[in-house]
Design a protein around this nucleic acid. Structure first.
Lengths: 255, 255
DNA sequence: AGCCAGTGTTCGCATATATGAACAAGACCT
DNA sequence: AGGTCTTGTTCATATATGCGAACACTGGCT
């Protein structure tokens, strides 16, 4: 109960369980006991017991030799259900379809979590043959249109300590980012000009369903296909999409 | 170590952690402490500590009052990574795209897990506007083409004790199912004629990447759009898709 | 062959957690 | 208001778990 209690996050073994799952999720691939041990720093024997338990439950799988571990199938179900159960994602569904349809570009729905934005829903662009699963992926706030739109909506946004460089155009200083957020508030939408991924520009707006906003939508475009006309077109459609979702939300709350 | 050790699945608190996540995933929605307590049967106080721990870690979220719990955003990431890290799903990707393209129908990739098949990847049909997230969902083996194809490939398949009725056409007796599996082996592919979902027929084949097979692919069609010609067409394309995937797998193993 | 380094596995004790019972806080009656 | 449920929260102790150290295997090296 004293101030030194920062080391007590609760049930230790539950914490480790999800940290382990998180590790697998971040890294992907298969790892040996010692590799995981080195990464997470738990004692070998504790980790061993934990892994065996999770293997037995199907949340972790091993290779035939039983010595390499990876995430198991039971973990799959969990992710999908967060999205299925979310009313906002549900409401936005049709509008995201529409936005993808009229722009022909990749559309994302993202939610703020700490200093990241988590993709909750997305529509592949018509040009992108392969519909990559991006749901559940995390991207930084400071280098993405989704993230910057959400930061700009916050009266006193908590910026990450260090703004990690993603590309040569990433804004990496706090003053620059604050100036950018001001521009976004004036302009009404956020733009990411290859600040997170080379060759990709994004336009994003925060959904004002609660203050400060937690959800945002964006349209991503290959930089090559971008020009002033297209830019105006995209931002207009994006704002229209926001209206639609906010309208739907309003009528859900006040039937 | 004696025979009565059936009650010791390992680290208790880890088991409960994933059981809790599983509960949220299955049920969706928000639940109070007592509701969860009644469902899972853990002592109130233990559950309380567990929930608080997971809330603090972002794996469980509460409503503003802090009294209703639901699954948290961090759980999202985990599911996606299972699929991203799987070599077979990766290999099948292009072929699934192709199969969806040439049939115009919904295509699924599924993997056996106990008495269920888990969807690992899917392509929406051209007629189905809304690309529903089905990845991670579980369907029974005995009432789906994916499941029956996988059972048929097994020399001595472990049939579920009780074959749950899904529709009026579901095969619910073991003898009937065994006969059906024999027919599938003779025919070369599995058919589900509205046995799992009214109005939906599916064609499925197991991928022979290991024996017994663990993965399968299927094409789903609205029963209305089905006729003998289309049926032959679909099964031919399905078998072709299987060849492609098996071919790709072979060349991945023997470069 | 024998050694060595690295890895997975087991075991007994110190420590953290699980638990039932008691307490607090509302909600809903009458 | 007062009483009576129901539900969330805290606490002390029995109990399960975490831990270091020892053991067992394996493969590579000399």
């Amino acid at each position: 109960m004293d101030a030194s209690e920062r080391t007590a996050p609760g049930v230790k073994s539950a914490t480790r369980t999800v940290e382990l799952l998180d590790f697998f999720a971040r890294q992907g691939g298969m790892y040996s006991l010692t590799e995981i041990q080195q990464e997470l720093g738990y004692p070998k024997s504790s980790l061993y017991a934990l892994l065996r338990t999770l293997v037995q439950l199907g949340w972790v799988e091993t290779d035939p030799t039983g010595t390499l571990y990876r995430i198991g199938m039971r973990a799959l179900l969990v992710g999908a259900s967060y999205i299925d159960g979310d009313p906002v994602v549900g409401m936005a569904h049709e509008t995201l379809d529409w936005l993808a349809e009229v722009t022909g570009e990749t559309v994302h729905f993202g939610r703020l979590d700490d200093h990241d934005v988590v993709y909750l829903s997305s529509r592949p662009s018509r040009h992108n043959l392969r519909p990559v699963i991006r749901v559940g992926r995390r991207v930084p706030t400071h280098s993405t249109s989704l993230g910057k739109a959400l930061l700009a909506d916050h009266p006193d946004p908590a910026l990450p300590k260090k703004l990690e460089r993603q590309t040569e155009r990433t804004i990496t200083d706090h003053d620059g980012l604050r100036a950018e957020l001001r521009r976004i508030r004036e302009r009404g939408h956020a733009i990411d000009r290859e600040e997170n991924t080379p060759g990709v520009c994004c336009f994003g707006v925060a959904l004002r369903l609660q203050r400060p906003a937690r959800d945002a939508i964006s349209v991503s475009i290959p930089a090559i296909r971008l020009n002033e006309v297209r830019e105006r077109e995209i931002s207009a459609l994006l704002l229209q999409a926001r209206e639609r979702i906010e309208y739907a939300a309003y009528h859900l709350i006040h039937p």
